[in-house]
Structure formats: structure tokens, C-alpha cells
Amino acid sequence: MSRGVETELPQARYSYGGDEFVFVELAEAMSLKVNFRAMAITNKLEEERIDGVMDICPSNASYMVRIDPDVLHPDDLISRLKEIDAEAGDIQGFELRTRVVDVPVMMEDPWTHETLMRFRDRHQDPETTDLEYSARINGYDSKEDFIAALLGSPWLVTMIGFVPGLPWCYQLVPPEEQVEVPKYVRPRTYTPERAFGFGGGFAVVYSVEGAGGYQLYGLAPAPVLDVKQELKDFQDSIVFPKPGDVFNYRGIEREEFDEIRGCVEDGTFEYRKKNFVFHPDRALHDPHAYNEEILGVLYGD
């Protein structure tokens, strides 16, 4: 399993985002290890409740902190962040108290299909669909094999943003199994709400209708954003996903899609989810074995 173990991370870059933000790029390249480090540091910072810290935003291979510089000097924050970074070390033994969640997705649904056909002129390969194109450039023999890979292993929510509630997800597989696709040549002006898309190394569920440049593969029946907070999963926040969540995208057919839509509309839908203590070192050491265990927690009794 040595090829699954990632190399040491480079030196972090600390930078001012004007006078109100501190931006820290832990690495230029994405890896599970770097995201675990971003989460370890931002979780620790959260616990410290430092005066003048307004927003703590973990992201894929970096993180960002918004401050009130009248209360907290950016350099004082950076000094503390460097200490926390050193304490986080190589994240050995770091535990993440999180949730594992079943996220149904209908692949090749009629709505995203209609959308991707409408914007074919903005795509790298207008002659195929986004799934066929992505399967081919990632070396899969068929789109079915490609879909099986996407739905075959769970994903880590590594960042929330772009628009409220949109989760970036990175698959819990060794680096050589990671899928990578370009974004559209020119972004679409329309993407359906709840579209399941992929860009760079990340899967997303679009939380709202709007512009977008990710390849389109399917549609989720359940929302990730509920501004009216009508569904049970949204009682505490208008946004469902949290950084560190483990999402298992499960392929469904039209019948189940319609059934879930009905539950969303009558307000009875609730995600299937279990609390879970995630051990990053196990995910790095033997992801497939660990994933079996995670799915057992989610779908077992």
C-alpha cells in the first residue's frame, strides 16, 4: 500500500487578503492529507475563540480567516496560526468527529442531460456527453465503469462555498485512482439546482440554479440548501453539508428520485446519516478497507 501514502507537504504560504483576511495556502496540490491538515488547524482555531476572528473557512488545500483588524492584528493571528500548524504536525492521531451521509443521485437524468446538450458549444468535446468525455480522458473503457468508480467509494466534504451550501467533495481513494476533469471551456449560463457536477478533482452538488463550469453527470433529489429551513436536517442552519462530512453518493433510478422529491416537497425528507469518528491516518493508509467499514456504519443496523 506504499503508493497510497502521500509525500510530505511543502511549506505553507501565509498571505494577507487585504487588511481583513489572512489566507494560508498549505499546498498547491490537492491531497487528502493536506485537507486533513487544513481541518485540524481550523478546528483548533475554532476552539480558541480568539477575539477579532470573524470567519474561519477551511478549504481544499488551504484555509482563510476573516478578522476585524481593529481588534486582532493580522500578524498576531499569523504567529498563532504558525504555532497551531506546528502542533498539528503530521496529523498523526488526529480524529474528526463527523457524520457519514447517504446522498442519493440519479445519474444521466433528463434535466442535466438537456442542460449539457444545450451548452455543447462551450464544451471541450461537443460530440459526446460530459460523462462519456470524462470517462475517456480518465482511461475508463466505458461510462458505466466510470460511474461505478464515482459511486463506488465515499467522498470527503473538503470545502463549502462559491455560493451558500455548495459542497466540494474529494473522493476517499488513493491518489492514482482520483478522477480529474477540466471545467467547461466557457462556463454555462445555466445549471439546474441540485446538479451533480465535477471539475478539477472535485465533485459538487450545485446548491442553487445558476452559472457553472463543472462537467454535469446527474441530479440529486434532495437539497443541500434550504433557505426556509423547512426540512428537519436544516433546523440549525440553512446549509446541510459541513466540512469533514463523509458523503456516499448512491446511484438511484427515476422511481426513487420521484419518491424522494415527494418527501422533500411535503417536508418529510431526512438524510440517512450516522455520527462517526473519522481517522484520517486510516483513510490514508488503506482507504478501500476503511471505506468498507464507513459504509457498514452508514448502512448497517
Partner: peptide
């Protein structure tokens, strides 16, 4: 780098300050 996408203008998605 891994995860960034092919275009030279692209990076691994990160936060944008106001």
C-alpha cells in the same frame, strides 16, 4: 498540480477574500 484542472489560470479551488 493535482486537483487544479488543466488551465494555467486555475488553482485548487480556494477561498476568495472580499
Amino acid at each position: 498540480p493535482a486537483g487544479a484542472g488543466a488551465d494555467q489560470a486555475n488553482v485548487v479551488d480556494f477561498g476568495y477574500p472580499v
